[in-house]
Design a protein around this nucleic acid. Sequence first.
DNA 1: TTAATTGCAAACGGTTTGCATGGGC
DNA 2: GCCCATGCAAACCGTTTGCAATTAA
Lengths: 151, 151
Amino acid sequence: MEELWWNHRLHDAGFRLTHPREIIINILRNTDKHLSAEDIYIKALKINPSIGLTTVYRTLDLFNQIGVVQKFDFGDKRSRYELIKNPQKQEHHHHLVCIQCKTIIDYNNFMKEELELMNKTEKALSKIHHFMIMHHVINFYGLCKNCQTSA
Amino acid sequence: MEELWWNHRLHDAGFRLTHPREIIINILRNTDKHLSAEDIYIKALKINPSIGLTTVYRTLDLFNQIGVVQKFDFGDKRSRYELIKNPQKQEHHHHLVCIQCKTIIDYNNFMKEELELMNKTEKALSKIHHFMIMHHVINFYGLCKNCQTSA
DNA sequence: TTAATTGCAAACGGTTTGCATGGGC
DNA sequence: GCCCATGCAAACCGTTTGCAATTAA
C-alpha cells in the first residue's frame, strides 16, 4: 500500500481516518487542478451530501500541517490546495497562472538553472541583508492557450 | 517639479488632486515599508482625522490603475502598496518577506542572471504549454536579522 | 455650477470559531 | 465510554458598494 502513505501519516500524527477525510483525499488524488476549498466542498457534496464546508477547511488545514497537502496562494483571494505526491523527494515545481480563467499549470523546466540562481541569490542575500531564506515562490502570470484565442 | 510626476499623471488621466489623495501620496513617499491599506489609513488619520478607510482603498486602487502605485500580495491576507519611484525605467525588483515580523525588504541583486533565466523559461513555457506570459513574481520567505536572533 | 469624490453604513466573500451533536476506536 | 471530529450558525476581517453629502475645477 505504498500509495496510501497519507493514511499512515495521518495515523502516525495521531489523527483518525474519517469518512470526510477519505473523501477529500480522494478528490485531491483524482485531479490535476489546484482546487479551492469550495471546489473541493462541491465535489465532496456529490459523494456525501451531509458534509460541511467547515470540515473541508479543517481537513485541508490538518493535511497541510502534517505535510500531506500543500497550500498555495495565487493572488485571487481563495487558497488552493495540491496533494503532495511523494513525501520523500521534495518535487519542487512552479506554476503558470492564467489571469483570465484562473487555470493553473504545473511546470518544472529549468530546475537546475533555477536552483543555481536561487542558491547564488540566497547566499548573497543572507550576506547582504542577514536574511535567512527558508523558501521561495516563483509564479508566472499570463494567458493560457484557450484564453488567448478567445480574447 | 520632476518629483511630482504622479500629480501630472493623475491630471493627465482626468482625475482631480484632492486632499486625501495628496495625503496618501505623501505617506507613500515618506516610507520605505510596504504599507497595507490600514497602515496608510492610520497614518492618514493623524493628518486629517476625517478621512475614511473607503477613500484610502479607492485612492490606492486608482493609483494602482494609473501606474503610480504597485499593489503586492505577500500571502498574508492584506494587500500592500509601494509608490513607483520612476515611471520611465521599470525598476524591476523583488522582495524578502520575513515570515515572523512581516517586514519586507526590496532587493535587486542578480537581475541580469534572473532576467536570462526568466526569458529562457518564458520562451520554453510558451512553446510547451502555449502560455503567453505577462509577468512573473519571485518572493523569498524567511527570517530577517532581528527575528533570527530573537527566535 | 456640477460632475467627481468623499464618508458612512451596510454588504460581501473567504475563512474561522463556539458549541452542541455524532461517530471512531 | 471517551474524545476526537463534525455540522451548523454566527463571527471575523479585509475589501467593496450604494447612496446622499461635499468639494475641486
